[in-house]
Design a protein around this nucleic acid. Sequence first.
DNA 1: CTAAAATCCTGGTGGC
DNA 2: TGCCACCAGGATTTTA
Length: 266
Amino acid sequence: MPELPEVETTVRRLRQPLIGRTFTGTSVMWPPMVRPPGVELNDRLPGQRIQSIRRRAKYLVFELSGGDRLIIHLKMSGDLRVCEAADALDRHDRIVFELDDGNQLRFNDTRKFGRVYLLAEPGAVLGRLGPEPLSGWFGEADFLALFERRSGRIKPLLMDQTFIAGIGNIYADESLFEAGIHPLRAADTLSETEKRRLYHAIRQVLSLAIRHQGSTLRDATYREGRYQDRFCVYGQHGRPCARCGSMIERVRVGQRYAHFCPACQQ
DNA sequence: CTAAAATCCTGGTGGC
DNA sequence: TGCCACCAGGATTTTA
């Protein structure tokens, strides 16, 4: 479920039940999800209180009273749920965090790609990330500056987390449509006007998606989001473009598909 | 340098 | 109904 809007929605949903709670124990059903390998959550987590929860790129960052940070990446299929201890475990619950109010935070992840880090110094995980696209400090000029010495196609560049943080397959496609830019364009051929359009498209698409609590796909576990009803191109191949009526196309870029309108996007 | 493929995993879907 | 290939919101590492 996770690109920036879905992770932001998850953070906002977790704050009320979790801030102020203290971890009392953990059960790890799939140890490879805890990084680096061999870190015993039970050695350091119990007794630490959750002081704040924030999002950085697609990571959730829990600031803890003992000076550590619990950092979680949901990857493709992860979900975080607050449950009562008596609730039956789901077969895809991989890590259970026990809380001092008797509830549990459960990391459910069908595909086991998700990752949990417990670190005093988060730089190793968060250090190389690009700017937050919705930050008040991130202006047009900052976005233009990112393009210096960057080549390659614009769509993979938008999904490069060291270029800009939080954009994945859906919101890269939707932002490029909104900006009228073809996903296979070389980044160093974009005019300044096109880059400015892209800057505003990214911010508009991401903030509207957050307002709709992200997108819900086939995945039955994450149902809050409604932004999928507003997709202009993602998953719309073979259907007419709502703006011009041309057929939406789909093309492979690396291992992923890019969806675009061949008339609206040049 | 870019870019594509392989990798980590499970489950749903569509074709035959 | 079964089997199989392919697909999926990510990101790193390897290979070309």
